[in-house]
Design a binder for these strands. Structure first.
Lengths: 196, 196
DNA sequence: GCTGGAAGTTACAGACCGGTAACACCCTAG
DNA sequence: CTAGGGTGTTACCGGTCTGTAACTTCCAGC
C-alpha cells in the first residue's frame, strides 16, 4: 500500500507522491512532515533538502495534482477527436465518476478552506490553477458551439464544485446523485439557445 | 478595556460566540482553545467546565450556526406571507448576499474538509444539519408549486455550495458572480415544466 | 456576615509541530 | 582508488497543542 509508493524511486518523488496522498486523505494541517517522510520511507532532513518548507511542499503537491488532472483533457480529445460536444459529455461523465471515487472533495478547495492566511503562497497557486481549469471548460463549451459558453461553463463548474462538497458533507447518496441529470439538462438547454 | 467584544454575558455564551467567529475566520485546526478563551476574556479551565472537549465545542458551534441561519426562513415567511414563490426568490437573493459577505465558505463544508476522521462527532452533526437544510428548500420549492421540487432544490443547493467554494478559491469576481442569473434561470425553467 | 458555587490563576503533563545541526554512510563518476 | 554529493541517523530547538490539578477569588442568596 504505502510500500507501493515507497518503491525505489528518487526520494523527492516519493515524498511528493506520499504527501499528495496524505494531504488528500487527512487534510494539510492533519499531516505532519514527520509522518510524510516516514510513509515515504525517508527522513525529515531529506525532505528539507528538496523543499524549503512545508508550505512549498504544499504548493508543489497542488501543482502536481493539477498536472495529473490536466491530462484528462487530452484523453477527451483522444477519445472523441474533433467532436467537442462529445468531449463535453465526456467531461460530465468523468466529473460524475470523480464524485464516487472517495468521500473527499477537491484538494484545492479543501486547501483553501484550511489555509486561511490571505497571503499564504498556496492561495495564489490555487486561484491560478482554478482559473486555468475554468478557461479550459469555457473553451470546450465555445468550441462545442454553445452560445453562452462562459455561462454554461461556469454553471457546470459550480454544480460540480457543489457536488464535491455535498459528497463530503452528506455523502454520495445525497443531492450529488443528480449531478449528471442536472448537467445534461443544462447542456441541452444551452444548445437550444441560439449560438453565435 | 474594550468591552465591546467581551461584553459581560455568561462565560459559556462568550466562549461559544468567540469560537464561532474564530473557527469561521481561521478554520478549526487553525485556532487553539487558548486563543479562544483569551479572546473571550476568560480562561481555559472555564472552557473545560462548560465543554468536555474541543470536539464538543466544535459541535456546539455548528449547531449554533445552524440555529442562527435557520431564522432566515422565518424572515422569508414574514416578508412574503403565504407567497412561497416570492420566498424562493428571497432565498436566492439571500444566498447571493452571503457570497459577498466574506471570502470564507460554508462553516459546515469547511469543517468537513478539515475533520477527516470518519467517526468524528462533528461529521454526523454536519450531515444531519445539511439534510435538514435540504428538506427546508425542497419544501419551499414544493409549496411554490414546482413540479420537480427535489431536483430544483438540489440543483439550487449544489449551485450555491459551489459558488461559496468558488468565492473561497478564486474570489468573489469569479463564476460566482453569475449565481443569481443561474438560479433565476433555473426557477423559470422548472416553472415552465408541467407539475405532477 | 456566612456560605457555596462559579469563575479566575498558575503551573504542569505529554504529545506533537516545523525546522536545523552535526555527523556517518553509501554509491557512483572520475 | 578516491573524491564528493546525495542520503540516512540522531539529537535537538523553541514553540504549540489539548487537557488537568490545585488553589484562590469573587459574588449572589440566605
Amino acid at each position: 500500500m504505502a510500500d507501493g509508493v515507497v518503491e525505489r524511486s528518487r526520494p523527492r518523488d516519493r515524498i511528493l507522491e506520499t504527501a499528495r496522498d496524505m494531504f488528500h486523505k487527512h487534510g494539510i494541517k492533519g499531516v505532519g512532515v514527520d509522518a510524510i517522510t516516514e510513509a515515504a520511507g525517508t527522513n525529515k532532513m531529506t525532505l528539507y533538502r528538496h523543499f524549503e518548507s512545508k508550505d512549498e511542499l504544499i504548493v508543489e503537491c497542488l501543482r502536481a495534482n493539477a498536472l495529473k488532472a490536466g491530462s484528462m483533457w487530452e484523453a477527451f480529445e483522444a477519445e472523441h477527436p474533433g467532436d467537442k460536444l462529445a468531449q463535453l459529455h465526456a467531461w460530465v461523465r468523468k466529473a460524475a465518476a470523480m464524485l464516487n471515487t472517495d468521500g473527499r472533495g477537491c484538494d484545492m478547495a479543501n486547501a483553501a478552506a484550511e489555509l486561511t492566511e490571505p497571503d499564504h503562497p498556496a492561495r495564489r497557486v490555487i486561484k491560478e490553477l482554478k482559473e486555468a481549469q475554468r478557461e479550459r471548460l469555457v473553451g470546450l463549451c465555445r468550441d462545442a458551439g454553445i452560445g453562452q459558453a462562459e455561462l454554461l461553463a461556469d454553471t457546470l463548474s459550480l454544480l460540480f464544485e457543489g457536488a464535491r462538497v455535498s459528497v463530503q458533507t452528506v455523502g454520495a447518496e445525497g443531492p450529488s446523485t443528480q449531478f449528471v441529470r442536472m448537467a445534461e439538462g443544462l447542456i441541452v438547454s444551452f444548445r437550444g439557445t441560439a449560438a453565435g
